[in-house]
Design a protein around this nucleic acid. Structure first.
Length: 853
RNA sequence: GCGCGGGUGGCGGAAUUGGCAGACGCGCCAGACUUAGGAUCUGGUCCUUACGGGUAGGGGUUCAAGUCCCCUCCCGCGCACCA
């Protein structure tokens, strides 16, 4: 075998061993240096191992960490495992293998793969959510939530998945099917633990403003919380004492309310329904209750509903209006009842049209807005078209002191709300889309709740000294089928006796959802082995908040919202010192795989594709195929395994390619062919340093300029996470300096330092080759000198009428006067101007001149 | 439908925020070295023979527009009867 000049395999092994043996990246608490906490979203260790999406974020954070260390920061950069979860449990159901065994094995694979990329984690802080020493404190936090009144049991219709034998959270149900496995999901009432995240809705919303997160993610969180302001209004039911309370964001349209709608689940439905309508109403309610969420939302296009036979009184004009029930009104939002204003609400309009309910226009549309939307104002006024937009109120006054005619929407809302409050029939109100968090799962592989249900019906919290409450050993991991978790089969474990009173009870059989462990793991890293408390307060004060948090956008709302919620609770009980956990958040974009489709657009698995000179064809039929990028999946066989890439090109090339592909946050297509480019770059770097004589020579002006421009560009790009452009600058440098026969020492040393965060193994090796004994990891980051970057002469573009005509070298600090003269004397410029009179001359110093004639 | 991103060579992507569009890389073409090349090096590579024309399409502001404004089209992501 021929000698490989750049032997990445040996080099990478050597330095990974070195870092491990010397504990190069072990971090000290309370160092004098400024702290910097960089966090990756810790992975669920799945059986499939790492895919190329994982190292994308990990590489980015690792580069930042290595850079910050060289900048003199004390960097906390930990890794751990979000190891509770359904897949290991499903595997246990199928094979009888205990989830802890599967989990352990998977973690070993993940660890090996992650270490092979040379990330500078402090492995001495590794945590695992399934470790009793960890989940003891997850349980402890639950106790705190309960004590604050934020945890309660409620009987709620939940998403029951018969195939999985478990209840799923709303987030785990996609289009009425389970996110995992795509099994049908139906609604079933069950006793569940809930967390009152709604109590924190306002703070979760308003504190978003101070976060350094991408606007997109912040907006998603705002939408998820979904704050709206409006009013609650009471409508009395004709012939009864009952009142129907509605929530509306448009109190200004009360005069246009021509009917009301209750959600089928509304408690008043039964009471107000007349005998004549009872059969129909019951039938409708029955139908809706058995419907899955999917079929219920399916009815999007066609509204359904039934008249209850009852009437209510519109409080602004005393009018009798019919009360209907319809499934387009949700019991879980607002008051579960609405006043319907068909003229100014598209849903009500559809409903009213279908059931021939009067439509009364009480808002004259804004002419401009209506024209822009292509809406005919006259039709709106006749009640033939719906206008949900702006305008002024009409036909909106009563004899009881309310007159909003002529007012714009905002003013009309305000005035109506004041009137309602004065008459004590309503008040201003705020609503959120955010619901309380369904916090139990009917699973084995999760944190047990530290509670017992006592025989007298009370709930007993375990004492802190009884934690952790361990999971019982089981042999059969199948769900109980009744909806209870497999824990219901753990006979002895179930029995609880209060150590103080001797009273008996039964342990909670639900376990916590996977989100629980990830809600506070970033805190445990600061103090991972503390047995006295979840984490030391002084350490928390030193390390928090997380300065940079990188992870996939799939956690844009749920994990990040839940973690923020817990953090605020912990803040309120005084164990954390910051209002928010994650100061800066970056979502890495998904990496897509090379995929193929035929002319009909049918997808073709990658192993069926052959590459010919004319392009990709289908192996068996020779049909022409087109290449495109699609999410990596088993079925398309377009998944790239980092192990293969590392074997072929090395970890440094892998790291560089992941960063060079494009901006961190962008969705990018993987193309194995392109790795060749960064690999060549590393080989060139190798030859430039390792196989070129290093001399103590001065650099000339242009060399100094390039060196310092490179320091500047790489540094500023690292500050803004512009990894792709930083690498391209390093390439420019290597392209130039690799031409030299002898490399000036200063250039060599500086370059290796700049390269080190990106490609640490080769950098360590080169650093050693040019004569250093210690690791490069804590070398001082180079500083640039603006002096050297400045050019003496700058090429100035001269345009005539905006068209480039000449490029003239001018002194760097040339005055406008000088620039102007030099430009006008230029032959090419003279030719373009042709003696025409000068109308205007724009001079941008250091850049260009534009002559207008 | 609503909200948020985005549309630049054959491909991945640059462009100091209004100032020479296409940096850097892949691919491709030509050449050098070579027994050999999936090694390395050199040169070329937006379109057009040219004049010129080009950043999804159309209009506008400006001395100057990929960048700002208006309209249209397309793609991705999120939410989806939230009153």
């Amino acid at each position: 075998m021929q000698r490989r000049d750049y032997d990445f395999e040996a080099i990478e092994k050597k330095w990974q061993d070195y870092w491990e043996k010397n504990k190069t990246f072990k971090v000290q608490d309370f160092s004098e240096k400024p702290k910097y906490y960089v966090l990756d979203m810790f992975p669920y260790p799945s059986g499939a191992g790492l895919h190329v999406g994982h190292p994308e974020g990990y590489t980015a954070t690792d580069i930042v960490c290595r850079y910050k260390r060289m900048r003199g920061f004390n960097v906390l950069h930990p890794m751990g495992w979000d190891a509770f979860g359904l897949p290991a449990e499903q595997y246990a159901v199928e094979t009888g293998t205990h989830p802890s065994i599967t989990t352990k094995k998977n973690i070993e694979v993940f660890t090996r793969q992650i270490k092979a990329l040379g990330f500078s984690y402090d492995w001495d802080r590794e945590i695992n959510t399934t470790d009793p020493k960890y989940y003891k404190w997850t349980q402890w936090i639950f106790l705190q939530l309960y004590k604050k009144g934020l945890a309660y049991i409620d009987e709620v219709p939940v998403n029951w998945c018969p195939a999985l034998g478990t209840v799923l959270a709303n987030e785990e149900v996609i289009d009425g099917k389970s996110e995992r496995g795509s099994h049908p999901v139906i609604r079933k009432p069950m006793k569940q633990w809930m967390l009152k995240i709604t109590e924190y809705a306002e703070r979760l919303l308003s504190d978003i403003d101070e976060l350094d997160w991408s606007e997109g993610i912040k907006e998603m969180q705002r939408n998820w919380i979904g704050k709206s302001t409006g009013a609650e209004v009471d409508f009395s039911v004709c012939g009864q004492n009952d009142k129907i309370r509605v929530y509306t964001t448009r109190p200004d349209t009360l005069f246009g309310a021509t009917y009301m709608v209750l959600s089928p689940e509304h408690p008043l439905v039964e009471k107000i329904t007349t005998a004549a309508q009872k059969a129909q109403v019951d039938e409708y309610c029955r139908k809706v209750s058995t419907m899955s969420d999917l079929s219920r939302t399916d009815l999007n296009t066609e509204k359904t509903g039934v008249f209850t036979g009852a009437y209510a009184v519109n409080p602004v004009n005393g009018e009798k209006i019919p009360v209907w029930i319809a499934d387009y009104v949700l019991i879980s939002y607002g008051t579960g009842a609405i006043m319907a204003v068909p003229a100014h609400d598209t849903r009500d309009f559809e409903f009213a049209t279908k059931f021939s309910i009067p439509i009364r226009c009480i808002l004259k549309p804004d002419e401009k807005e209506a024209a822009a939307a292509g809406i005919d104002v006259a039709s709106v006024l006749e009640g033939k078209l719906c206008w949900p937009g702006n305008g002024v109120s009409i036909n909106s006054s009563n004899s009881d002191g309310l007159d909003i005619n002529g007012l714009e929407v905002e003013a009309a809302k305000k005035k109506t709300t004041e009137w309602l409050e004065e008459k004590k029939i309503g008040k201003g109100a705020v609503n959120y889309k955010l619901r309380d968090w369904l916090f139990s799962r009917q699973r084995y592989w999760g944190e047990p709740f530290p509670v017992a249900h006592m025989e007298d019906g009370s709930i007993k919290l375990l004492d802190e000294s009884e934690l952790p409450l361990l999971l019982p050993e089981l042999e059969d991991f199948k769900p109980a089928g009744s909806g209870e978790s497999p824990l219901a089969k753990a006979k002895e474990w179930l029995n609880y006796t209060d150590p103080v009173t001797g009273k008996k009870g039964r342990r909670e059989t639900n376990t916590m959802p996977q989100w629980a462990g990830s809600c506070w793991y970033y805190l445990r890293y600061m103090d991972p082995f503390n047995e006295e408390c979840a984490f030391d307060l002084k350490k928390e004060k030193y390390w928090m908040p997380v300065d940079l948090y990188v992870g996939g956008a799939e956690h844009a709302v749920l994990h990040l919202l839940y973690a923020r919620f817990w953090h605020k609770v912990l803040y309120d009980i005084g164990v954390v010192s910051t209002k928010e956990p994650f100061k800066k958040l970056v979502n890495q974009g998904m990496i897509l795989g090379q995929s193929y489709k035929d002319e009909r657009g049918a997808l073709v698995p990658s192993d069926m594709v052959e590459h010919t000179e004319a392009g990709p064809v289908r192996k068996d039929t020779r049909e022409k195929l087109t290449e495109f990028a699609a999410k990596m999946s088993k079925s398309l066989k377009n998944v790239v395994n980092p192990d293969d890439v590392i074997r072929e090109y090395g970890a440094d090339s892998m790291r560089l390619y992941e960063m060079f592909m494009g901006p961190l946050e962008a969705v990018k297509p993987w193309n194995t062919r392109d790795i060749e480019g960064v690999y060549r770059f590393l080989k060139r770097s190798w030859r430039m340093i390792a196989e070129t004589e290093t001399v103590n020579a001065e650099m000339d002006k242009s060399q100094l300029r390039l060196l310092h421009a490179t320091i500047k560009k790489v540094s500023s790009d690292l500050d803004t996470l512009g990894f792709n452009t930083a690498i391209s600058q390093l390439m420019i440098f290597a392209n130039e300096f690799s031409k030299l026969d002898k490399l000036p020492r200063e250039a060599a040393e500086t370059y290796v330092k700049l390269l080190a965060p990106f490609a640490p193994h080769i950098a360590e090796e080169l650093w050693e080759i040019i004569g250093h004994k210690d690791s490069i990891a804590y070398e001082k980051w180079p500083e640039y000198n603006e002096e050297y970057i400045r050019e003496d002469e700058i090429e100035i573009l001269v345009q005539v009428l905006g068209k480039p005509k000449a490029r003239i070298m001018m002194p760097a600090g040339a005055s406008e006067e000088l620039m102007r003269n030099m430009a006008l004397e230029n032959d090419a410029v003279k030719a373009a101007v042709q003696g025409k009179p000068l109308k205007k001359l724009i001079c941008v110093p250091g850049r260009l001149i534009n002559i207008v004639v």
